[in-house]
Computed example of a mutant assay.
Amino acid sequence: MGLGSISFILIVGLIIIALSVFFTFVPIMLWISALASGVPVGIITLVGMRLRRVIPHRIVNPLIKARKAGLDLTTNQLESHYLAGGNVDRVVDALIAAQRANIPLGFERAAAIDLAGRDVLQAVQMSVNPKVIETPVVAAVAMDGIEVKARARVTVRANIDRLVGGAGEETIIARVGEGIVTTIGSSKTHKDVLENPDSISHTVLNKGLDSGTAFEILSIDIADVDVGKNIGAQLQTDQAEADKRIAQAKAEERRAMAVAQEQEMRARVQEMRAKVVEAEAQVPQAMAEALRTGKLGVMDYMNMQNIMADTEMRGSIGKMGHSHKHSDDKNK
């Protein structure tokens, strides 16, 4: 192979590489598609998107769709929203849906809703086709102590103006549940709620529960109402059981105090008996000492013995008379 042939092959290879890089970096087919759709986008603009790390087809394709729908959008608007982290295709679809439904929605508003984390297309669809939110079972107690369980279906419509900064579905469910509890709790009997479940709907709707939320409540329908437990009777039973336990505890406390006092008295009696025994044990010694020292004469001692014997005899006679009387009473 000659030098000329090698040079030719190198030149062809370099041309192929250059064309590959060119067609990879410059989306010619996308540019042709835009021109065919009547959306003039310059090659320089597409190259600039590449340099700004913007995927061109994510800007051009939504722009073509918007122009075909009659929306006056520019590449700068879509590109700035893309660079901000937004979903350009969803915003354009939402603008087209809003235009078809005669809902006033501008690009800046739609872009703000999208950047706030809301699904702007779903919001537009909910503005046209309201959504039904079903609450979980809410239990409340009427004034007569009977528990009532209710479940509601809330029909809401998205409020475009309050989507940014407005509360979501969880707030609607919580507020409706609070309204149900309030209505049931203010009813005199559970029968009033069962007979007129629509009273819950009227009371809840009059509270303006959709203020500060991203939705507008259209209606609240009570889907199901059931009777639960007799909470009043259960509370009374629990209170009676608690009172019973308190009384038992107090009685046990009094019994323990009585036992402690009895034990204390027994201890005192034992102590007194010990002292008496100790004193009686000292009497003979004292008498012997008195006789020895002459403080007590023999006659005095004999008189004292006679008195003690007489006292003991009288005591014996008294016990015998008492026992005879007790036997007569039993015989009778």
Rank of each mutant, 00 (worst) to 15 (best):
A240Y: 11
I43D: 04
T45E: 15
V91M: 01
I32D: 04
R254T: 10
M302V: 15
A233V: 13
R153G: 10
H202D: 13
M308F: 11
L209D: 07
R255K: 13
E252F: 10
P27K: 01
A84G: 09
A167E: 00
Q285F: 14
I32L: 15
L3I: 13
N76K: 11
R266N: 02
H202C: 07
I160M: 08
P27Y: 02
R58T: 15
Q234K: 08
I59L: 00
G70H: 14
S211F: 07
V41Y: 13
Q248N: 10
K332H: 10
R266C: 00
G70K: 09
R118Q: 02
D192A: 11
K149C: 07
A110D: 01
E147P: 09
R153A: 08
L3M: 12
K275A: 08
T24M: 04
K332F: 14
I28N: 03
T182D: 15
Q99I: 00
A152C: 10
M304A: 11
G42M: 08
L291H: 04
L163R: 03
G2P: 12
V60I: 06
Y82V: 03
S7Y: 10
E108I: 04
P40Q: 07
M49W: 14
T293V: 12
S7V: 06
R52G: 07
E289V: 05
D328G: 04
V154S: 04
L291D: 00
S5M: 12
R67A: 09
M304V: 05
Q261K: 04
D161E: 06
P197A: 05
T311E: 12
L78E: 01
M299F: 09
A214C: 00
F107H: 01
L209R: 05
E312H: 11
D328H: 12
I103N: 01
R314N: 13
A167L: 03
V276N: 01
N230R: 06
A66Q: 06
M257E: 12
H57T: 12
Y82T: 02
G117F: 11
L73I: 03
L218F: 04
Q122G: 05
L83V: 13
R254W: 11
P104R: 02
L218Q: 02
E170H: 05
M257S: 10
F215R: 00
R273T: 13
P56G: 05
A242Y: 15
L218D: 01
V193W: 06
K131R: 06
A223L: 05
L30H: 01
V277P: 07
G228T: 12
R50T: 14
I180Y: 05
S316N: 12
S187R: 09
A158R: 06
P284S: 11
A110P: 01
D224L: 15
A98Q: 00
A279K: 11
D161N: 09
V88N: 02
M143V: 00
N306P: 06
R109G: 04
L194C: 03
H190L: 11
N76E: 15
I220M: 04
V128G: 01
V60G: 00
S186P: 08
H190E: 05
V12C: 11
E134P: 03
Q282F: 07
